[in-house]
Design a binder for these strands. Structure first.
Length: 583
RNA sequence: CGGGACGUAGCGCAGUCCGGUAGCGCACCUGAAUGGGGUUCAGGGGGUCGCGGGUUCGAAUCCCGCCGUCCCGACCA
């Protein structure tokens, strides 16, 4: 499978750092606060200070003293703004303000790295091309896993786990597959101090080991379909890496199924593509275009590859998930056969499909802005952060108490919608409210509640949306409904905004090849154009513009009027294609 | 693999040309004040100058070799 996904082998419960202690979880609200909060915080890391220059490489974690202790008043404040030059790519940008991110307009690539590092989603590891996924990033991944896993179960799949190490000879059994993957496979040659008789490869994907095992388990058509998923890590030795988008090791999920007929496998491949698309739009608020890959972009060993393609804010495409109809290629290579209902031995038909932690990169490049991350509520480890505002110790005590009451009210409301809200109260002292606002915005928490004496006197609180930064006072009487409604609206609005952005940067009218080249060299975007179906035209366009066919779009995405001629050669078009530069 | 930049405190950097025993900002610690959009002030701790060798009375600095990182390109399910 390809690199769209990532995974993790641990079942979701493990290491899930993003929530409060169990007792609190049972009530459905995750509250982290005061002493208990601090304790959980050191585990979670999810709520941790990011200070002004927490930037380019992660900052080490700190634990804060419980709020009852006098806070560090002194050293907290960053001083005046300072000029500084950072080198990203070969360009130099002067950052007038240390605290501000490089803007998307100034250097998209630098901006992306800064958001990932400063929002503490991930950090570089000592090994080139590898990264550490930090609690903030892993919390998002856990939410993705949880949702996807439920969707896989709902479509009849079961989880299993296959080993990391695979005999090297297995890879070679499917000709196209080995050709596609061999160059980027890591090989283990020694173990226990001795050279191995047969080297082992570290899985770049698990088709070979999984279908060899399927072959042992399947005898009859009654054993089919076999619908398996695994959450795992894989390794591909890439030349050039980027945080989340392309790393040597990544986490993903790979589904592998076996069926009695081609049509059933085809239906499965399409079904899982739909699951991905639903997840990306419904949970990530990231609209995608689905369709078939051209042969040159097809998975090594597959009959057909389907893909979900999303448009990032720099107008480049991101392949966000793929689903393959593998035909009988692997079944033949691994002797995966069954006795058919009416006699005779037949090879099974397989599918595989995957998404990876690359989705987190997609989330950042779809939603983050010049102030930092924006997380759709459904995937946010913290959905609502409460920032108490006060001057005196008395006021502080009052506000913290009020915050507790609000949490309780949310909890009461939640009895009707259990498990919905993930709330955090920011009790840190010695940090001004404004500083907290910036920090939570950088981290992408979708909704913030400001709670101060003036609000409380009116039995109100101020809610601030991360996506629009719109502020509005709300009565505490109906706080549960207000918060929930706003979160749902944020979720919806983020999808709408992303879809509008994509459409605004898509070209559907007939375009000359010259204009196309110019567009690809300039602002980019998705271009719907005709294609003669020839690999030569495709290759030449790639050569000359770096644009590739992202997909031959499914019907719902096609233009009202099918393009008549090939973008490159002008011969009659056999299919509409979406062209773009891609990650 | 080619091109570029770089490696000095947790982070970002200056110092290297012209050798003299390491500095700045942030972060961190202590105290006080402050607190509705990135707080002040005062005090304080922290460095095998990537690694190895050489030159020298003396090396972050000069010479040789190595390692590593990032960016651009090539490559890429």
């Amino acid at each position: 499978m390809d690199r769209d996904g990532v995974a993790q082998h641990e079942p979701r419960g493990a290491a899930c750092g993003d929530r409060a202690p169990p007792e609190r979880r049972e009530r459905g609200i995750r509250v982290a606060r005061s002493a208990a909060h601090e304790a959980s915080q050191s585990r979670e890391g999810g709520e941790r200070l990011v200070r002004s220059d927490a930037s380019r490489s992660g900052r080490r974690q700190r634990d804060h003293p419980p709020f009852v202790e006098p806070g560090p008043a002194a050293g907290v404040g960053p001083p005046a703004r300072r000029r500084r030059f950072i080198v990203f790519s070969s360009l130099q940008f002067s950052m007038a303000d240390d605290k501000k991110l490089t803007t998307r307009a100034a250097d998209f690539s630098a901006w992306y790295n800064e958001v990932v590092l400063r929002a503490e989603l991930a950090d570089y590891s000592p090994v080139r091309g590898c990264m550490v996924i930090r609690p903030n990033g892993y919390g998002i991944w856990e939410r993705m896993q949880r949702t996807l896993d439920d969707m896989f179960k709902a479509t009849g799949h079961q989880n299993a786990y296959f080993p990391l190490l695979i005999p090297q000879s297995y890879l070679a059994k499917e000709a196209e597959h080995v050709e596609g993957f061999a160059p980027e496979v890591a090989v283990v040659t020694h173990g226990g101090g001795k050279k191995l008789d047969e080297p082992l490869i570290i899985r770049p994907t698990s088709e070979t080991i999984i279908y060899s095992m399927f072959a042992k388990w399947v005898q009859s058509y009654r054993d089919l379909p076999l619908l398996i998923n695994q959450w795992a890590n894989v390794v591909r030795w890439e030349m050039r890496t980027r945080l989340f988008l392309r790393t040597l090791e990544f986490l993903w999920q790979e589904g592998h199924t076996a069926h009695t007929t081609h049509d059933e496998a085809e239906e499965e491949a399409r079904r899982m593509l739909g699951v991905y698309s639903d997840f990306m739009e419904g949970h990530m608020a990231m609209p995608v275009i689905t369709g078939l890959k051209s042969n040159s972009e097809r998975f090594a060993g597959a009959l057909r590859t389907y893909s979900c393609e999303a448009m990032m804010q720099d107008n480049k495409a991101l392949q966000a998930g793929t689903s393959h109809n593998l035909g009988q290629n692997f079944a033949k290579a691994f002797d995966l056969k069954f006795q058919a209902e009416h006699g005779g031995i037949e090879h099974a038909w397989n599918t595989s499909w995957g998404v990876s932690t690359r989705l987190i990169g997609g989330l950042v490049m779809t939603h983050a802005d010049d102030n930092g991350l924006r997380t759709p509520p459904l995937l946010a480890p913290i959905e609502l952060v409460i920032v108490p505002i006060y001057k005196t110790d008395d006021e502080r005590a009052q506000m913290l108490e009020a915050a507790d009451r609000v949490v309780e009210m949310l909890h009461d409301w939640e009895r009707r919608e259990p498990g919905r809200l993930r709330v955090h109260v920011d009790t840190r002292d010695g940090m001004k409210p404004g500083a907290k606002y910036y920090e939570w915005e950088l981290r992408g928490v979708p909704l913030r509640m400001e709670l101060g004496p003036r609000d409380l006197a009116k039995n109100e609180a101020v809610l601030v949306r991360r996506d629009t930064r719109e502020k509005r006072p709300v009565s505490l009487n109906a706080i549960g409904e207000e918060v929930n409604e706003l979160l749902m609206r944020i979720q919806d609005d983020m999808l709408i905004a992303a879809r509008e952005r994509r459409e605004a940067n898509s070209v559907r009218h007939t375009i000359s090849y010259g204009d196309f080249k110019e567009l690809m060299e300039g602002k980019g975007g998705f271009v719907y154009a005709g294609w003669c179906g020839g690999a030569e035209c495709e290759a030449q366009i790639k050569e000359e513009t770096k644009a590739t066919i992202r997909v031959l779009p499914d019907e719902e995405f096609r233009s009202a009027e099918a393009p008549a001629n090939c973008l490159k050669c002008g011969r009659p078009s056999t299919a509409e294609a979406v062209w773009a530069r891609a990650y």
